[in-house]
Nucleic acid binder design. Structure first.
Length: 824
RNA sequence: GCCGCGGUGGCGGAACUGGCAGACGCAGCAGACUCAAAAUCUGCCGAUGGCAACAUCGUGGGGGUUCGAUUCCCUUCCGCGGCACCA
């Protein structure tokens, strides 16, 4: 059989596209469109997940280009990070060499897929002309007070030898290497993302083009709670303890208080008392538990009495102060008022330690006396046991109590977030150095902008032991203080790679700028990204950080928009045998292998056809072959039509204009356009073209004199154009064979001819009691009454309803007639 | 526990606004071509009953709304993802 020579064709057109700069922006006055796929870490080899991600993006970019947009479709490298450093340790290759050679290898593989990137805009985050601006941005944050250093208990990954951000700890494990994460007290750099918590939450509403799933995940992560801070005076002390609660309406039921074991005041409370040792032992014991054990909801609640009391400011009663394992030091104020009647955790604790339980909210349709046993009531209700608030609805009391506290200065309504500041420093070498020096006289001094970049020294040794190589490089370490000129030391921590990737999409708009990270007007022009595509695993990390960066940059005046990504498509995973492809499972299919066997067009077509983009895709070797067959079928259809001179047939004899084929052609145009543009349902778009191909085959199989050459040509050319974004190489070849000189990718996307979509006749369904009994072909302009008459008069229908009473007839013009009958 | 998504043939999936369930593809079966195989082409392909025309059932289960439900509502089961001692 004649199969097309994909190797020859694909390399031929890849070269052509490159030489003719087909995908570079030309600065035309066409409307602009920014299509972006999440840039990869240059591991060296692309995997099927990359193939899927980039093929989806490529279809969108090519489609938009054909639709008349000037499309920005760049690619680059998230090139800093640990694997390079690990390779350096294991194989004694410098991370820089390793990374650059990986980039070259991956770039070649991406090009082999025929992706329409504008490589003139390529960025790599590890190059000084990129990280210079990462450092510059850090300095802007620093000057705004949004980058700061503090000592605190941080997540430490013993295997990666570095601290981790909260977002990088998944189930108590390191997101990258799965080692158990422990806690250390360290002095580290943070971005003050919590300052933007409210804005980040609020603006989720602006993101109409984002999946709800991702917005919900971000919203959960930010974790906003509305409540109040309430002050409880400590008995026998001038100090007050402030608690955060979401239920100030239950304050009359607060029968004890709990502090986190790490709370700053604990030591002072017990110092010199008989409780001191017991409390210290308990704190000590908790410190040895991992975070997972510490915070698991299944862990039994346990605590110690401090021997001290505080005053419930509303009841005037003294209540005991405990410390307990279930209170977190870094949420709210690290202290809670415990209301056992209306909080399950507090109730469990109170029952265990014999603390009194006072219900203060009466559930609806409940009579007093009301008692709580082992189930706390957490809903709303009527206030009881609450002094002047008795009888009030609890929601009302919430506000009234807050008001009373605010006027009395004993508390205030407040909001708490789960989101923590972003720990950005890493004790590793292969990252952007934090542009700061330490001076004995001046303290922390930011590196002046004119001295950027703080270059990563290349002449360092990788032992894999102990500290980051930067701490051993004296040439790097020793410097002078920019302020006083005395000897000073450089910061040896580098930035989290998520900092690099939080602004790369802006750099693409102005990649060669040596004066600033990007030109404001260029950024404003191209951004926000019209369509962003990537894996859902970045739902919180990268996507939240990037939103944060853009918001800060707007506030600094670097740009004029609020959100980086207008529309987001999160593609599903590529599975084989029901599991994610991975080396350890041995179910990896190599893209290079598939391209070698079937060509890039087949690989592209398969990943687009096998499932809609958001869903997981199950790899199927037979499915790949099916796609290969389909492409060959097209190849034969077109080449045969050309060789048999069918498309240039003169229509001198009265060749019939085949209305149904013309309908099919134009229906396919509108279907494919809609599927690609509105829904990204590439699978159904491809199905539609397959149907058209089937029709064209049938049409071509007719006797030569029955074939209308112009119609066949219209059908073939339409089919070619519709498939251009999906299988760009073969289609380009066929387009040329059809006699075109310009690239098909610069041709105009076909438009459906509305008149061809008007049918003279339609098939309608005749139902009896909702069940299909007959199908009729009727003239499409029949009125409701005429349609009904025709259906009722049909022989078979008449027979079926004979002897029954027609209760009702529903007619949906052009679609169906439903006859409702009852036995008479 | 809370939130979100999903459940349709042997398989991937389609049915867009409540109107023919299963498009398209894969696998399978039969046939054509061939010495033969591959490739290609043609036909069949949800279940049950029937020689057949056809009938009945069928979109996780149960209920409801409707002339009509894969689609809307209630309820329940199962799977996946996120958050989770967050006061």
């Amino acid at each position: 059989m004649a199969t097309y020579d994909f190797n020859h064709i694909e390399t031929k057109w890849q070269r052509y596209w490159e030489e003719n700069q087909v995908f570079e922006l030309n600065g035309s006055d066409r409307p602009q469109y920014y299509a972006l796929e999440m840039f990869p870490y240059p591991s060296g080899k692309i995997h099927m997940g990359h193939v899927r991600n980039y093929c989806i993006g490529d279809v969108i970019a090519r489609f938009k280009t054909m639709q008349g947009y000037d499309v920005l479709h760049p690619m680059g490298w998230d090139a800093f990070g640990l694997p390079a450093e690990n390779a350096a340790i294991q194989h004694q290759i410098h991370p820089d060499t390793w990374t650059k050679s990986n980039i070259n290898e991956m770039k070649e593989q991406l090009n082999r897929l025929g992706l329409s990137y504008d490589w003139s805009r390529e960025v790599a985050t590890c190059t000084p002309d990129y990280y210079r601006w990462t450092q510059w941005i850090f300095l802007q944050f620093y000057h705004k007070g949004l980058a700061y250093k503090k000592e605190s208990r941080v997540n430490w990954c013993p295997s990666c030898d570095t601290v981790l951000a909260n977002e990088q700890v998944v189930d108590g494990q390191c997101e990258r290497c799965d080692s158990a994460v422990n806690k250390k007290n360290l002095n580290q750099w943070y971005f003050k993302i919590t300052d933007y918590a409210e804005k980040l939450l609020e603006d989720l509403d602006l993101l109409k083009g984002w999946p709800d799933k991702v917005k919900t995940m971000q919203s959960n992560w930010i974790g906003k709670s509305t409540g109040a801070d309430i002050q409880f005076p400590i008995s026998g002390s001038k100090k007050v303890l402030t608690v955060f609660t979401t239920r100030p309406d239950t304050v009359f039921g607060a029968t004890y208080m709990v502090l986190a074991p790490e709370h700053a005041v604990v030591e002072e409370l017990v110092s010199g008392t008989s409780y001191e040792k017991d409390v210290q032992d308990f704190v000590h014991q908790l410190q040895h538990l991992s975070d997972v054990e510490r915070t698991s909801a299944e862990t039994e609640k346990e605590g110690r009495f401090t021997g001290r009391y505080c005053l419930n400011p509303f009841t005037g009663q003294e209540i005991p102060i405990y410390i307990a394992n279930y209170v977190l030091a870094d949420y709210g104020t690290g202290a809670i008022m415990a209301v056992p009647a209306h909080d399950q955790r507090d109730l469990d604790f109170a029952n265990k330690y014999g603390i009194s339980v006072i219900p203060v909210i009466l559930p609806p349709e409940t009579e007093e006396p009301y008692k709580i046993d082992s189930d706390a009531y957490t809903g709303p209700g009527t206030m009881i046991n609450s002094g002047q608030y008795n009888g009030m609805e609890s929601q009302e009391a919430f506000n009234a109590i807050c008001q009373q506290m605010e006027s009395g200065g004993t508390g205030k309504q407040t909001i708490s977030y789960r989101l923590r500041d972003w720990l950005l420093s890493r004790q590793r070498y292969w990252g952007a150095p934090i542009p700061v020096v330490y001076c004995d006289h001046c303290g922390i001094v930011p590196v002046p902008e004119k001295d950027l970049p703080v270059t990563l020294p290349l002449d360092v040794a990788f032992s894999g032991k102990g500290k980051s190589p930067l701490t051993t490089s004296t040439s790097f370490l020793k410097t002078t203080c920019p302020t006083c000129g005395e000897e000073a030391t450089r910061e040896t921590d580098t930035m989290d790679t998520f900092v690099d990737s939080s602004w790369y999409f802006l750099r693409y708009t102005d990649p060669q700028n040596s004066e600033k990270p990007f030109d404001k007007s260029l950024a404003n022009q191209w951004m926000p990204v019209d369509q962003y595509i990537g894996g859902v695993e970045h739902a919180i990390l990268h996507l939240l950080y990037s939103r944060f960066f853009v918001k800060v940059m707007k506030d600094i005046g670097l740009l004029d928009f609020d959100e980086p990504f207008n529309n987001l498509l999160t593609q599903g995973m590529v599975l084989k045998d029901g599991a994610k492809m991975s080396k350890s499972k041995g179910n990896v299919v190599s893209p290079a292998e598939i391209i070698k066997l079937y060509g890039a067009d087949t690989a592209r077509l398969f990943v687009l056809f096998a499932a809609p983009p958001e869903r997981d895709l199950e790899w199927s070797d037979q499915g790949v072959e099916g796609c290969y067959r389909f492409l060959n079928r097209i190849w034969r259809l077109v080449t045969e039509a050309i060789n048999d001179d069918l498309i240039h047939l003169e229509n001198t004899q009265e060749t019939p204009e085949d209305k149904s084929l013309r309908y099919k052609i134009h229906y396919t145009i509108s279907k494919v356009t809609d599927d690609v543009e509105q829904r990204f349902n590439f699978n159904t778009a491809i199905s539609a073209v397959m149907e058209l191909v089937n029709e064209l085959y049938k049409y071509k199989a007719q006797k030569k004199e029955d074939i209308n050459g112009q119609l066949l040509q219209e059908g073939i050319e339409t089919m070619i154009q519709l498939l251009a974004p999906f299988a760009p190489h073969m289609i380009e070849e066929l387009w040329q064979l059809m006699g075109h000189r310009e690239s098909v990718h610069l041709a105009e996307w076909p438009k459906a001819d509305k008149s061809a979509l008007v049918k003279d006749e339609v098939e309608i369904v005749v139902q009896i009691n909702g069940k299909v009994k007959e199908k009729l072909i009727i003239s499409s302009n029949l009125s409701k009454e005429e349609t009904e008459k025709l259906a009722m008069g049909h022989d078979k229908i008449r027979q079926t309803i004979e002897g029954q009473q027609v209760a009702r007839v529903i007619v949906v013009p052009g679609k169906l007639v439903n006859i409702v009958v009852k036995p008479s």
